[in-house]
Amino acid sequence: MSVLVYTENWEGKFKKLSYELSSFAYAIAKEMGSSVTALSIGHVADDELKSLGKYGVSKVLNVQDNRFESLDNKAVADAIAKAVASENAKVVILAHNNEGKAFAPRLSVKLNAGMVTGVIGLPVSVEPFVVKKKVFTQKAFARIQIKTDVKVLTFAQNSFDVVENPVDTAVEAFDPQIGDGEFTTKVLDTHKITGKILLSDAEIVVSGGRGMKGPENWGGLEEMGDLLGAGMACSRPVSDDGWRPKEEHVGQTGKIIAPNLYLAFGISGAIQHVAGVSSSKYIVAVNKDPEAPIFESADYGIVGDVFKVIPQLNEAIKEMKS
């Protein structure tokens, strides 16, 4: 019996998210008196695979098979199911992101498992198995019981601390034996930024809205992003008007993010925008309108001209760093 966690990597390095998931899996395993096995798919070096041991993972199943690069939903879900069977796992944890949302539902059907997505924090109890999640697009919490023997969870990022629980880790090559015929998704073309901070994995996010007045005014925010090692984001009108790439749109219909610090410049804070960022630990808002709804969600605020405030902040960050 074990807890199985699906750990994602970005360019061969585990995402911070994967360490968070491992820490979460370890805490559940401890309550259930079992141990954690991680499943890693892709080219991750042995040292990196072993690094999961620091966060409580006792065994890593390592799948190195280029066919999985197409992220074929069916083939990957089947591969995870094979790992679950070989480990006799009772709880399976994926991230509540593009990949987790693609694989977990298929996996739950395959395993006859009940599923809860977007789980936050530790289970309320493991017997019965009750977890919490946000519902009504961040406006409320629900407690949900999973009634099946095997449980599938997707875990909402940044709702559990990365905790070190060093254990000995065995890395094993794993072949889930998925036939060629199972891979039907053909990738024709990929556009992908590389070497940049992944917005969904960023601890600090710098974001701009209509109040930035035009794409030519983003220099100050980009400088701030560089200084802080932050991800860049924007509001919906900004991405709809093509001021910024649509990958940067955060909000109800864009990306939902939960960084430690979200800095919003010239964003009024419509309910749809706030729904995408309200799980951030701290929200900072700079807006010239004192009545802007963003201040209701913010922890710190400045009423003022973004073009006066941004250079001052960048100066102060440089001073702090030096």
């Binding site: 069916k74 879900a77 693609a102 977990a104 539902p105 599923m115 997505t117 009504f136 697009t137 629900a142």
Partner: peptide
């Protein structure tokens, strides 16, 4: 947008 389950589509396909 109510229960934010993100499950029905994938489950149905399976």
């Amino acid at each position: 947008s109510d229960y934010n389950g993100a499950g029905v589509g994938g489950m149905l396909a399976a």
